[in-house]
Design a protein around this nucleic acid. Structure first.
Lengths: 218, 218
DNA sequence: CGTCTATGTAATCAGCGATTACTTTTTTGT
DNA sequence: ACAAAAAAGTAATCGCTGATTACATAGACG
């Protein structure tokens, strides 16, 4: 006890400094882990704080409430979905417009099935607050704009019936894709269509839908 | 205090007998009221018990847990949806098969928009336990069977492309209808398609979808 | 160096789902 | 008719939750 440095904390491990360093990110990561382990309905602020090594009240310094925390998770998830979609479109850049639309739908559905918990969060409107997010609304608008562009192109080159109102085609397409993803993730699909594994039925349904969009042989 | 009847309870009002009479039903009704007032995520067993005039523990004599209570609500809601759909089909009994399918879809969507809270409950797979319900699974199967019947009829009379696989058409149709209903109820539709009131967009999207199902002019 | 601010904690509140032990009523068998 | 059993209620309690308040500490910055 003579020449030892007069540190107040002689313990070996760094022993959790008073300030975490990056608590917000740690909380988001912990929340994602909870969701993946136990489902989105079991998320609790206190558990996230526990995992991040903070007190139960600490999260409230960074997130006004539980909704804000989950909205931060949703923001991150939405970025990933948007990236997945944009990457798939870029890979299909040389194809016909309705092929690219199908690629978009395929990427959307694949991402949803691969990341069901993230999909549930960005889809929820009771757990998150879309209005207070800076990413979710714009990302959805961007995806919609891509769809509109492809459909307009398809109308010009004759691969889409020119009488169709594009706004409603976009809505119909989104309703189909969203409904299919939710059915698959929430378990409705397995109940409704038990004859086939979900992973097989989803792309088949998408292909069928796209085939209806194209002009029939005449 | 002499000739009065020796009743133990001389109070004027019946004063809440020890046994409620029909607590299960009262709890289901109270739960529905809570859902409609404050949303499905604010349902609590204790609040339902309070409204039914029972102690916080009383509900557990009739429902094993919160899920069981909400499943009872869902059972009742599913009956109503099934009735709405069957009534609409009966009213269209004289029409062509794809017209009847559209009538089914229209009734489904109208019921969903008119009863958003009930729709949310029967659609949820985290709040209720479909496997332990005696109504939900069969009702869904019945609706699916109606759709299959109409589509088979449509294939025979030439109003549906005979190459289409009916199982996948049914799945696609259900995904579209379910997705559209959820988008409308959860608020996605207003975000995605802001140019038009939800109540206008839904039937238009349905009509558009049905038009794709019919053979094109050739 | 000293102060201000950001970030953390402890203590507390009301509400929740669920369980246990106990009480009261109704049903039922003889 | 009546006692025993079953059904239906209650009170008290547990551990958990979201959120708030008052206080403590660390870091940033003049």
């Amino acid at each position: 006890m003579t020449l030892h440095s007069p540190k107040k904390r002689p313990s070996q491990k760094p022993a959790a400094p008073y300030h975490h360093g990056n608590l917000p990110e740690a909380l988001v990561a912990a929340t994602i882990a909870i969701i993946e382990e136990r489902g989105v309905e079991h998320v609790s602020i206190r558990e996230a704080a526990r995992r991040a090594g903070a007190s139960p009240a600490a999260p409230f310094r960074h997130f006004a409430n539980k909704t804000a925390l989950l909205t931060a998770v949703a923001d991150q998830a939405m970025d990933r979905l948007k990236n997945a979609v944009e990457w798939a479109i870029a890979a299909a850049a040389h194809e016909a417009p309705l092929q690219r639309l199908e690629a978009l739908g395929s990427a959307y559905l694949r991402w949803a099935l691969d990341n069901p918990t993230h999909f549930q969060i960005i889809s929820s409107r009771s757990l998150i607050d879309v209005a207070s997010s800076e990413r979710i609304g714009p990302a959805n608008s961007a995806i919609r704009a891509l769809m509109v562009g492809m459909l307009e192109e398809g109308r010009e080159d004759g691969s889409l019936d020119p009488d169709l109102d594009i706004d409603h085609v976009v809505l119909m397409t989104r309703a189909f894709g969203y409904g299919l993803a939710r059915m698959a993730i929430d378990g409705h699909l397995a109940e409704w269509h038990p004859s086939e594994p979900v992973a097989d039925a989803v792309p088949k349904a998408l292909a069928l839908f796209m085939s209806l969009l194209r002009p029939k042989a005449r």
